[in-house]
Computed example of a mutant assay.
Amino acid sequence: MLMLTYYGHSCLLLDDGAHKVLTDPFLTGNPTAAITADAVAADTILLSHAHGDHFGDAQAIAERTGAEVVGVPEVLGLLRLPGAKLHGMNLGGTLVLAFGSMRMVLARHSSGVAGGCACGYIIRMGGKTVYFAGDTAIFSDMKFLGERDAIDYALLPIGDNYTMGPEDAALAAKWLGAKHVIPIHYNTWPIIAQDPEEFKKLCEAASDAKVSIVKPGASLELA
């Protein structure tokens, strides 16, 4: 069984009952955060890039939990943690861990640090394949991602302005061939305000994906 808990913005936890993978832990200063940085659990932290609303509380959470932090080397260079707690990788690389594996994939977005790049992750955990897109525009290689992996759940930003908006995210779901889509990175601030119900209609009309709207603080079993 794999459970997803959404903490708001792009922060979520994947928990298979034995391992906990946390993404982009922006909690302090996040008006939608459903948990505090001193309460969240993690064994592994995945960072998509170094903007403050994604890099967020990575340092504090890793110090408290002892979690390993994964990201591109330039992003990890901003952390003050022992080298044993950092795993640098780059686009196309695959990392095998106790819970399964993950592959770092392209995201079309600025990185927040000189020389770095933004990324997403294809995560294999609990018998499921989960695509965490990070912050990204739509890009044609999403078709390749869908051909390369049978994606069970795609976690896609829909906020617009800084990332793709609902229309492009709906098209991305089609290109990815995802069975399920969960929208993220919206309604944190007025500039990225979106109606997830409208996105659900768009996405399900444009693709075969089923959309699950998970509110901050709520959990969903990835069946």
Rank of each mutant, 00 (worst) to 15 (best):
M1T: 12
L13K: 09
L14I: 05
L22M: 09
D24C: 08
F26G: 00
L27N: 03
N30A: 13
A33H: 03
A34K: 07
D38L: 10
A39Q: 10
A41C: 13
A41I: 08
A42V: 00
T44C: 00
L47Q: 06
G56K: 04
D57M: 02
A67S: 07
E68Q: 11
V69H: 02
G71L: 00
V72F: 05
P73E: 08
L76T: 03
G77S: 09
L78V: 04
G83K: 12
G83E: 12
A84H: 07
G88E: 05
G92N: 07
G93V: 07
L95Y: 14
L97N: 02
L97T: 01
G100Y: 02
S101M: 14
M102D: 02
L106D: 06
L106E: 11
L106N: 11
R108S: 05
G112M: 08
A114D: 11
G116A: 14
G126V: 03
G126L: 02
K128R: 15
T129K: 05
F132K: 02
F132H: 12
T136M: 05
T136V: 09
S140W: 15
K143V: 14
K143S: 12
G146W: 12
D149V: 11
Y153C: 08
L155R: 00
L155H: 04
I158N: 02
P166T: 15
E167T: 11
V181D: 00
V181N: 07
P183Q: 07
N187H: 08
P190N: 11
I192C: 14
A193D: 08
C203M: 06
E204F: 09
A205K: 13
D208L: 15
A209R: 06
V214G: 04
V214A: 05
P216A: 09
G217E: 15
S219L: 13
L220Q: 13
